[in-house]
Design a protein around this nucleic acid. Sequence first.
DNA 1: CTGGTCACCTGGAAGC
DNA 2: TGCTTCCAGGTGACCA
Length: 270
Amino acid sequence: MPELPEVEITRRGIAPNIVGQHVITVVARIPALRYPLPVRFDKLLSGKVLRKIERRGKYLLFDFDTGVLLVHLGMSGSLRLVPVALPAQKHDHVDLVFGQTILRLRDPRRFGAMVWIDGDPESHPLLSTLGIEPLSEAFSASWLFAITRKRKAAIKIVLMDSHRVVGVGNIYASESLFRAGIDPRSPAGKISLKRYERLAPAIKETLSLAIAAGGSSLRDFVHSDGSLGYFQLQAFVYGREGELCRICERPVRMIRQGQRATFYCPHCQR
DNA sequence: CTGGTCACCTGGAAGC
DNA sequence: TGCTTCCAGGTGACCA
């Protein structure tokens, strides 16, 4: 369920409530998500103070004095703050208990991850290979232009490659390309600097707006307090196959790229 | 390196 | 109603 904006909203939602507090206990109800959960998870974190929560791409880094708990929400994960008395439901796999509050991970598909890092997080294999942050200054038209020279892959595929740029998932990739008026199938190496000068800001805007909306365009995004996203951000194209483009009123088309659905307007995106 | 495919897993919706 | 098929927000592993 989460792309970068949802992960960032989750971070902002939970951090004020648990940062500075110590873990009372950890309850893990299954042995593994995508990877095995940390061994002796409870012993590892009990009594440890959570110093801060940072985000890198779609990963959350829970910073304890003794190391970092790396959390990824995969396709279907959510983190919520719930009262200690609230019984766990199906797919509630991990609880970090802080005083009267539990940070509860729910993840039906179990593509998410919780991994303990006790060295330098930057050099951990899951983090060291990540690309740059799309909301950073380094992410720019000239950077996009430079890294795509001679690349034949479709621009949408490149945008979604987390080893180049992090956090741009399937929905916001389609939406950003629509905003920039670029055909998602265009070979990345054939796109001009001028067009990247539309695309880079379009990506930043799309992500920033989603964060600012504090919800998202995602159908079933769940906030850390359990409330649902607000749908304030209307998708221009995502999920709208056959419906009319909000700009030109011609039908939105869906294609498959790399086994993922891509939505675009053939008239507005060239 | 690049570009393409597969696997991991569950549940909801659509089709018959 | 019930069975089958397809689809979903991600990403590492593997192949040529």
